[in-house]
Structure formats: structure tokens, C-alpha cells
């Protein structure tokens, strides 16, 4: 034992020095120190104290932005997870060709810039866009439908962006389902409807919670998509923070909002981690 420890100690040290330490250093320099800076602004700008946090808590304008952000993110997460569940199902259990098509369709969006995607949706959804002009030409509608420059447009764009991210944890959880358990259920007399709602859905619930959480948290920071597809009318918290910081130079308020948002995300991570084993979602 003694020789083993002596022999492994230098190796452990080198693993530390070469592999782990740089990561910690990177996290410190690129995240922790800037975050400390942001936090210090929130309690020092324009003067020392918690006045900015008091404003976050009392300003009805900020409240309505926060509420809208939570609403849009929750709706985005619901729709994305629903779509992703269907995609993941066919990805895992579909015939080979369908699997390939879905894998391709899920991966391709990662290569297309978020800006291009947002403008693509704008082209489709705007009053003179393809959808409205087609519907008008066919005679189904006389006035264009308000599909964009509102919350609907923002949610459409965000669901499109987020669905692939929700697919991965769901695929991972579905792959871990033992199909014999479903066979057992059918052997015991359960039909497809009951097999799904009483067996498959509960077994994949950790993936659903995980995917919902990933989409929701990711969506909280959305900035470009709401700015383009909301047409300036659907301001979400990230855009508002940006405005405070870079246009009105109200650094203290922006920093206080950012810190509040970060605290909220950490709290949610802690709550979700009590129900879901994150490592299972990454297998």
C-alpha cells in the first residue's frame, strides 16, 4: 500500500497541475471574477447600498418585464419539450431511415446562426410574409394575421431554437428504458394508452423535467430572438439588462437584475437536482 501511494502521488499532482488546475483557473478568470465585478456594481452604483435591489422589488415596470420573461420561457419550454418528446421517440424507436432524418434535422440548426434563423422566421411570419400572403391569396383571410412582433412570434422563434436542446436529454432517458418492462405491462393486460401513461411516461419523467429545466434556463437569457421577432414590443429581461447597461448607463440596476436572475437560476438548479440525476441525462 505504502509503495502504491508513493508511486501515485506525483501522478496525482501532475493530473492536478496539468488537467484540473487550468480549468479552475479559467472558471475563476472568465466567470467568477467578472461575476464578482457585476455583483459589486449592483451594491455600489451609483452609491453604496441595496437601493437597486429595492427598485427591482418594487418597480411595476420591472415586474411586468420579469413576469413576461417567465411566461415566455415557460411556454417555450412546454412547447419545446412536447415537440422534442415526439422527435426523441421517433429517434429512439423509429425505423432506421426515420432515425437518420431526425438526427440530421436536430443537428442542422446548430450550424445556422441564431440571427439567420430569426430573420428566416420574420420572412415567414411578417404581415407581407409567405404565410400571410399565401393565406390572403387563397382567400382564407382578408387581413394578415398578427404572427410576429408580438409574444407569439417570439415564442415561435424560441421554440424553434430550443427544441434540439430538449431532444438530447429525452433521447438519453428513453434509451435507458428497459423495453421488457413495457412488454411485461402488455403481457399483464395493459393496452397502449395505459402502457404509455402509466409506465413509459413515468419512466421518462426525469428526462422531461431535465429538458424543461434546460430550455427554461437557457431561454431566460434570450436576447436576439425576442429583439428581432418581438419588434421592440416584447422586451425580455436580458434585453432590458442590456439596455440598462449600455444605453441608459444605469449599471447598478442592470447588475442588480443580472444578480437576481443568477440567484433565481441557481435556486432552480438546486431544486431540480433534488428530483433529477443530471448525469443520467448526459449518457
Amino acid at each position: 500500500m505504502a509503495t502504491a501511494t508513493r508511486r501515485t502521488r506525483p501522478r496525482r499532482l501532475s493530473i492536478w497541475a496539468f488537467y484540473i488546475a487550468p480549468l479552475i483557473l479559467l472558471l475563476l478568470v472568465s466567470y467568477f471574477i467578472p461575476l464578482l465585478g457585476v455583483f459589486s456594481w449592483s451594491v455600489t452604483e451609483p452609491e453604496l447600498g441595496v437601493s437597486q435591489y429595492l427598485r427591482v422589488m418594487t418597480d411595476p415596470g420591472i415586474h411586468s418585464i420579469l413576469l413576461r420573461t417567465l411566461r415566455i420561457c415557460a411556454l417555450t419550454a412546454v412547447f419545446s419539450v412536447f415537440l422534442a418528446y415526439l422527435l426523441a421517440w421517433h429517434w429512439v424507436y423509429g425505423p432506421p431511415l426515420r432515425r437518420k432524418i431526425i438526427a440530421f434535422a436536430v443537428l442542422v440548426p446548430f450550424w445556422i446562426s441564431v440571427l439567420i434563423r430569426a430573420f428566416g422566421w420574420l420572412a415567414l411570419l411578417r404581415p407581407q410574409g409567405i404565410i400571410n400572403s399565401t393565406l390572403t391569396d387563397v382567400g382564407l383571410i382578408s387581413d394578415p394575421l398578427p404572427l410576429v412582433r408580438n409574444e407569439l412570434g417570439v415564442i415561435i422563434g424560441m421554440v424553434h431554437f430550443m427544441t434540439p436542446f430538449a431532444v438530447f436529454p429525452l433521447v438519453s432517458v428513453m434509451r435507458q428504458v428497459d423495453l421488457r418492462i413495457l412488454q411485461a405491462a402488455s403481457g399483464l393486460g395493459a393496452r397502449a394508452f395505459r402502457r404509455f401513461f402509466e409506465i413509459f411516461l413515468p419512466l421518462t419523467l426525469p428526462g422531461i423535467i431535465g429538458a424543461f429545466f434546460i430550455v427554461f434556463v437557457f431561454a431566460l437569457g434570450f436576447f436576439i430572438t425576442p429583439a428581432i421577432l418581438g419588434g421592440g414590443r416584447v422586451v425580455m429581461i436580458a434585453e432590458y439588462i442590456y439596455t440598462q447597461m449600455s444605453q441608459t448607463a444605469n449599471w447598478g440596476l442592470g447588475a442588480a437584475l443580472a444578480t437576481t436572475l443568477l440567484g433565481f437560476v441557481l435556486l432552480m438548479t438546486w431544486i431540480v437536482s433534488r428530483f433529477v440525476d443530471f448525469e443520467r441525462l448526459a449518457k
Partner: peptide, 14 residues
Amino acid sequence: PEDRNFGMVFQGYA
């Protein structure tokens, strides 16, 4: 299978 009314014990028990 759900209409056969057979019991089944699987490998690994399921």
C-alpha cells in the same frame, strides 16, 4: 399479448 390473459416472468423480472 394484452388479450391472452397469460402471466409472464421475464429474465431480470421487468
